[in-house]
Design a protein around this nucleic acid. Structure first.
Lengths: 348, 348
DNA sequence: CTTGGGGCTGGAAACGTTTCCATATAGAGT
DNA sequence: ACTCTATATGGAAACGTTTCCAGCCCCAAG
């Protein structure tokens, strides 16, 4: 019963060679005679030898691990992102250390610290706020960081590579679609103004309306915190206060959910009485009755691209990365038209 | 510009002490004078020293990492599981290396190998099949494995700790509920017979029917492979072939989705024309019209418990674990009654 | 004054790799 | 036969920790 795990030394002894030779055989570098190679391979197989990544990483100063930091793995968008990262990392032979920040900057900082200790080669993050001190700290100790979904607004982290969805374009396409159907009084359910995402989508909403020469109405724009309850409350208040609106655009899937629920609660037929669209496509959008029109964001692709970007960046010097990686990668969104939007009941 | 990352040696030099002393200060063990401690702490802070987990793990022969292996992170059940593991691991100071098997045993074996190389302290897995060789291999090299969702059916891995949902009880409660409403011709949409889950739920279905003295009808039990298309095809074929059925129980969420879609396609009103229930509660069940009755499985709790179990097991010897951990932990399911089930239209 | 012990401290070994370098061997060219 | 080169091999250092052990100093007790 082997209580001590077997090392390269054991293999060397069993094969009657030096440990350097075993290393050469197993890593495939250097030259070894076919005869020796065979003996070593046989010994390794015989002993069921598993090389330790610890020893190797220590020597090589490179772990082949990448850190992945998302707000919440149960959020479908985050899950898609994770899947993309996993796919790319797997094909590149890297492993992924994952953790969830739950939108708490303190927790995020703690996790980044842990990842630094683990000496990951880089971090992919959907940050709570990209300008926090721990991010610049991480870059200072030499590991590359890639942001996803929204980039930093701070000044210090300029040059941090980022992979974004074209949110602005996504909102625009949805608004254009609704206006094209004849809607003029369109409600917008927005996420918290404190988050980059919440801010940006609301901006894009009003901006597009202005471009389309629809008179703005600030009473039609409502904010919610990022909880189910808050989303529901916001939707309820909007529907109650403004019975004259003919369409609603939900700024995220929580708000979309709330809009659907509240419309049902108020006995509004969709899309006859009110049209509903949502930013962020979900599996359940297809299952709604009627199926919900939504703007799909390529979560999986974003994860994949971010991972590619990160690994590529790790190979270069920080300097070169900073010089080259100025522009964030922006991936297109797609308006998926389903049955939840139609012309307004009473056109004026 | 420090191109070389700073080590304990640098801190020792800066503080004018030996490296042993620095280690004692930072790890909190041993005795150091307050004066020295202060100097070391100051030096570490000054240099922004981050201890390397590589060195520590190598020396301690323990990484504090746990491997997490699920079929697919975008599956809501798996996502819940991951969240639970992350929560527990975080509070225990462990980090989590995650990967997805995509239900491919070969890929799974590869991932296990990688985790062994990384010297994780243990693995939590939702295995494709618990009896595969790589699992016994992993246990042989001394790391503890905990299965989730379904345990092994093989003989070799007896004693592998497991955390399960009471699927049998869940199916039973759903069937009892439907029969209680007056249904007698209940369709069952089952997952692949090759998977433990698919087999077990179908068994529980027929078994419960027998216990309730409802005459079985093998034409009402349909299997699908685990893809959306296959699920849809199975549901369509069942509804088409057996227009006399009054209720359908979907064996997983993919099949539940398919049942809802097909019922809508066939212009069947729910629950007036057909009642639908599903194993596995999803966020979208609430959003369906009518909301879908489902059996909730405690994904997050399962992950949390599995992680607890694993870490506890790592502290003991394999022998003791094997002796103690005979019984798997079984967590209760809950039937969530919503609006998708009612009495059959024409009772006979 | 001596002895003993306890609190602090630093040197060194060990953990498992990779790789540089030195050496040994064999074959080929003169 | 001698040198030269290419190939094959092993020893040893290095990576960054932790911890054992030995040594030091100082104070109290004899």
């Amino acid at each position: 019963m082997p209580n001590r795990s077997i090392t390269i030394k054991d293999v060397a002894a069993a094969a009657g060679v030096g440990i350097a030779t075993v290393s050469r055989v197993l890593s495939g570098s250097g030259s070894v005679s076919p005869r020796t190679r065979e003996r070593v391979l046989a010994a390794a197989r015989e002993l069921d030898y598993r090389p330790s990544a610890l020893g190797r990483s220590l020597k090589l100063q490179r772990t082949g691990g990448i850190g992945l930091l998302v707000p919440d793995v149960t959020d479908p968008f985050c899950a898609g992102l994770v899947a993309g990262v996993l796919e790319c990392a797997g094909s590149l032979g890297e492993h992924v250390i994952i953790d969830a920040s739950h939108d708490d900057p303190a927790r995020e900082a703690e996790i980044v610290d842990r990842l630094v200790e683990q000496r990951v080669d880089g971090i992919i993050a959907l940050p709570t706020r990209g300008d926090a001190a721990h991010w610049t700290g991480a870059r200072r100790v030499g590991l590359s960081v890639t942001f996803v979904d929204h980039a930093t607004c701070g000044s210090d982290a300029v040059g941090t590579p980022a992979v974004l969805a074209d949110d602005r374009g996504g909102v625009r396409s949805a608004v254009e679609y609704l206006v094209g159907l004849g809607h003029r009084r369109i409600g917008f359910l927005g996420g918290p103004a404190a988050t980059p995402t919440g801010r940006l989508r609301a901006e894009a909403f009003t901006e597009t309306l202005r471009d389309l020469a629809v008179t703005p109405d600030s009473g039609l724009l409502v904010r919610a915190r990022s909880s189910r309850d808050s989303a529901y409350a916001a939707a309820a208040s909007l529907f109650q206060r403004r019975s004259d609106l003919t369409a609603v655009l939900a700024g995220n899937h929580l708000l979309g959910e709330a809009a659907v629920l509240v419309a049902r609660e108020f006995d509004l037929r969709v899309p006859a009485d009110v049209s509903i669209a949502m930013i962020g496509d979900m599996a359940w959008a297809e299952l709604c009755d009627p199926p919900l029109t939504a703007v799909a964001r390529p979560a999986r692709d974003m994860g994949y691209r971010a991972c590619e970007l990160l690994v590529r960046a790790s190979d270069r010097t920080i300097e070169r990365t900073r010089r080259e990686g100025g522009r964030p990668v922006v991936l297109p969104t797609e308006l998926i038209v389903r049955g939840s939007c139609g012309p307004p009941a009473r056109t004026r």
